[in-house]
Design a binder for these strands. Structure first.
Lengths: 346, 346
DNA sequence: CTGAAAGCGCTTACAG
DNA sequence: CTGAAAGCGCTTACAG
């Protein structure tokens, strides 16, 4: 910068002001031009650390998530990264998986001023556990998650998404629906469960909920196996996410139940392979990428001194009916007889 | 830090040396204890930006990848993040997808000293395109990718992995094998192709290669459809990755070919859903997480002034034979007749 | 064994 | 309209 100043024959402070487009700067067009020219000529790049030190900002935010393997994080992260970039911020990745061992801990990141704030998208830590971290004061925004008792989150309308999926099966004629649900102590899972229950009871039907242990394919597989045992007459399943849905379809198949002939399955959230597995997986798509972007906006507002807020990103909710969903067996018995008729009551 | 020094009754320079465990520091145990105590009492956290500015290090590296949706990046990224953390570095995420538009560009990240080096894991940019970026000088390491003409990469033994998958089908009795391959101008894809070709010709068979446009499920679907047209007698397919494999299985099914009864499919690299889709997907697992960790080591060595190196992470290569692979139809004709017999020659 | 001082590369009130 | 100067919070040769 000193070089640039010398090249342009001005003081470094002027160079700085030109670079930062200081609004209260009233500079001679010719001087500005000389400075811009000098910057070009010297190939000058401003040093972000120096800038950050002076401005007391890291211009970096942290994104903490359990694992990158769950496909739901793909759109959220890419939405966040591109919005952050547009606003001059970098996104560093952290894992909440082993956050008590090697991984950069919440406190370190914030305490050492390596990041200005944190985005936390963890579906694994319980609400209580999260609240323990007494995060009120720190600039933290939960993504796809709300922690009762704290403020500062960006979510989508999970209840509506779940209800939309449920209603689709009701409309197809299903009367015995079950939900493979996440733990009740995780707000997002609870809202999906709510959406299911209200849609089912709204249709005058009885709800049936099986809790999934570990919200992945194995969890879905196990939960569906239990469901087949406990509620064998079920003809429609709403899975809390696409991994659980896929595991459930597999379990149904191994138990001799065909999807969708015997049982229909709809997932909350899509999966990159949904259109390529057999049967193709039906789902409700929620605005995940936009949620990621909005969470950055919310966090930066917080960093800039704004009050914590709970935002729900709405709109863009679409139902994708694919092979895994169809009319219940009763409605189609004439054409496609159900294999395990013993399990059909009435 | 000034507070800490005052609390302990020493100079800030001593505090700094204690914190950084300066080896040439010979301090009185009592003084050290007083300083440590003062740090604890004051809740002091060192400021990374100031430290970085002084040391001319960002203690941050960038990880550029095309999309987070491809499951192969999961283990690579998490391996990299945890190793980086162990070495005191943060990992910022960048996308190579739209690296000419909004995303933080290579040059900016490095030029503004926001990162000390870059890890690039892009399967989409061609070798030529990458070389254009004249990266020789900059501390950059390519992950899962080698750019002919440049040095600085960490890869796994793709040829061996691909050969292992191929040999598995040969051993099962397959004689007509095809490879759904990535573009030849991408080194990793070329090495997988090589492994396939050498295994096939080594067994005295003829190789058949179909190039996949876009290494995702849709690409696999399209490529398999062309394969069915062009080489209908094929009984075994080695897919360049798990997404392509899944797309291929789908295409085969829609063309009336059963997997594995009519055609077997093995994927290079696993997928989180591989054991839950039907048929479950056979694959070769490569040490991706370790590759991610090693790439960090390699990059940090480079940052510390070491010469660029090409490293291949070996070992940990396992074959997972699941439902999608079995003996070819000829070998099992007696028990399970092939549906489209017209397509079987001889 | 410990301290004083310079300096990393910026930004920003304050002068003039 | 432009410049001089202080300071962000550290680290590190250099003294003593």
């Amino acid at each position: 910068m000193i070089d640039v100043a010398r090249l342009a024959g001005v003081d470094v402070s002027l160079v700085s002001r030109v670079i930062n487009e200081d609004p209260k700067l009233n500079i001679l067009p010719t001087t500005r031009e000389r400075i811009l020219e000098a910057i070009r000529e010297s190939g000058y790049r401003r040093n972000f650390q120096a800038r950050g030190l002076r401005r007391q900002r890291a211009f970096t935010i942290g994104f903490l998530l359990p694992e990158v393997t769950n496909p739901i994080y793909g759109p959220i992260v890419s939405g966040a990264v591109s919005r952050a970039d547009a606003r001059g911020y970098l996104v560093v990745l952290g894992s909440t998986a082993g956050h008590n061992v090697a991984e950069p801990s919440f406190e370190d990141l914030l305490g050492e001023k390596r990041v200005d704030g944190l985005l936390i998208a963890s579906g694994e830590l319980s609400d209580a556990r999260m609240r323990e971290l007494r995060l009120e004061a720190a600039p933290i925004v939960f993504v796809n998650r709300r922690i009762p008792g704290t403020v500062g989150s960006v979510t989508v309308d999970d209840a509506a998404g779940s209800a939309l999926a449920t209603q689709a099966l009701v409309d197809l004629g299903h009367r015995r629906l079950a939900h493979l649900a996440g733990a009740t102590d995780i707000d997002t899972a609870a809202r999906r469960r709510e959406g299911f229950v209200s849609a089912v009871t709204g249709a005058g039907l009885t709800d049936w909920v099986i809790e999934v242990a570990g919200d992945d394919a194995q969890g879905g597989f196990d939960a569906a196996s239990r469901l087949i045992d406990q509620a064998p007459t079920t003809t429609g399943i709403i899975a809390m996410n696409s991994l659980v849905a896929t595991g459930a379809v597999r379990a149904l198949g191994l138990h001799g139940l065909r999807v969708p002939d015997d049982v229909s399955v709809v997932s909350v959230n899509d999966h990159p392979l949904a259109e390529f597995i057999t049967p193709t997986l039906s789902c409700v798509r929620m605005p995940l990428e936009r949620m990621g972007a909005t969470s950055v906006d919310s966090l930066l507002a917080r960093i800039d001194g704004g009050a914590a807020e709970d935002t729900m990103v709405t709109g863009d909710m679409t139902l994708c009916l694919r092979e895994s969903a169809g009319p219940p067996p009763a409605a189609q018995r004439s054409s496609r007889p159900r294999r395990r008729t013993a399990r059909i009551p009435g």
